[in-house]
Computed example of a mutant assay.
Amino acid sequence: MNNGLKALRLSSDELGAQGAFAAWQASLPQFSTDLNGAAMADFRVEQTAWLMDSLIVGSGLLAPIRVVRTLSQIGDGYSQFQFIQSIRGRWTGDADGRAIEAEEGDTICFDTARPFRVVNTFSNHRFLVVPRDKLPHALVSNPALHGTVLRSAGNFVLAAHLDALMRCLPALHEEEAARLTRGTLAILTAALGEIDDQRLSKAETQPAQPALRLRVERYIEHNLASPELTPEAISRDLGIARSSLYRAFSPLGGISSFIQLRRLDTACALLFHPEEHRSVRELAETLGFENSATFSKAFRRRFGCSPREARGRGTTQSRDTKAMFERWQVATQPPQQAAQDRSLVGAESV
């Protein structure tokens, strides 16, 4: 039997400005959100979203707001990619110190495992939430992805695809959605090929600190398996003063913390790879952890479950878009219905 896709709708016309803003905030606990100085009475939101296999696809209108992902929040393990495509309106902010300026037609790339800040004018936009393991490793590990604004021909193809997809989603069934998910990811991956072209064209004008950080991050990616991957080794091999190294990575929690997070994210991707058969202990050793116990403890702290639990389920608690979408559904429902759903969830867990 074919089933329709899970869907949600959030409307300030139905909930009122204050109720809709409260629901919108409740659906995004991994971010700090506010009205950026605007009056509550002026808040407006009209958004619809669907769970398309492992992707969340949506669109809508949104009044000016501010969304921030702080360094302290990154410890919650929420680690996915979000893409916001502006149809009308302007988005500005920064990602790891890199300025974001997106106009109509642009697509902004966000890695929620890294800090960022963004504000918007009144906007009409589409959005796409993608689990990390659904993108090629070369893209996932590319530090230039976070904060990049896509403007190439590939982005226009992606826009046309998402526009057509939004019209089809209400009538899609799960089997069709699985097929279209593969196509959507292929088009997204092609559009993201613009990132390296942008990096090369901006190399001469990029601020010194972000450029230094990109250089170090690429060194880290190539040496994750080395137990000798330390700030001292990086400073020595790249000829960078340790003070400059520490200063560059201070917005990300420090260089040592960044190395561990990259090792954990890489381990998570490997756990879900269909051709990866090494044990948890072997993966821990491969990625430079002292032992499997240290690795498992750090993994649970970041992702909310053990490596074995994640491998068994095929996802981590923090990366499960299906569970996240269900939380969105409860948060965006009218108060009486949301209370009933929460009580049902509680009863099922007893």
Rank of each mutant, 00 (worst) to 15 (best):
D163L: 11
P170H: 05
E175Y: 11
T107S: 04
A160Q: 15
A190S: 13
L192Y: 01
C168I: 14
A144P: 06
A144N: 13
C109P: 04
R179D: 11
C109L: 12
R90G: 10
L139N: 07
A160K: 14
L158H: 00
A144T: 10
L172D: 02
R98A: 10
E176I: 03
A159V: 10
A191T: 02
T112P: 03
I87M: 15
L188I: 06
I187V: 15
L180P: 03
H137N: 13
V157S: 06
H161E: 08
R98Q: 12
H173W: 09
F116P: 01
H146C: 05
S123Q: 06
P143Q: 06
I108F: 01
L139S: 05
A171R: 15
A144H: 13
V129W: 09
A186L: 08
N120Y: 01
I87A: 14
T107G: 02
L185G: 03
T121A: 00
N155Q: 07
F156W: 12
L139T: 05
T121P: 01
T181K: 08
E176N: 07
E103H: 15
F156P: 02
A191N: 05
F116R: 01
L169F: 04
F110G: 04
S86Q: 14
E103Y: 13
T181S: 15
A153P: 04
L180M: 09
L162K: 03
G93R: 01
L150F: 00
R114H: 11
E176V: 05
F127Y: 14
R126A: 12
T121F: 03
A171K: 12
P136V: 09
T181Q: 15
I108N: 02
V140Y: 02
H137Q: 15
L180A: 01
L135M: 04
T189H: 02
R90K: 15
G183V: 08
S123H: 03
R90F: 14
D94V: 10
L139E: 02
N120K: 03
I108G: 05
R98E: 12
L180R: 06
V118Y: 01
F127C: 00
D94Q: 14
V119D: 10
L185K: 00
L135S: 00
M166H: 12
I187T: 10
F110Q: 07
G154P: 03
D96S: 14
P115G: 07
R182G: 13
T92D: 10
L150Y: 03
T184K: 01
C168S: 15
K134W: 03
V140S: 07
G93H: 01
H161W: 13
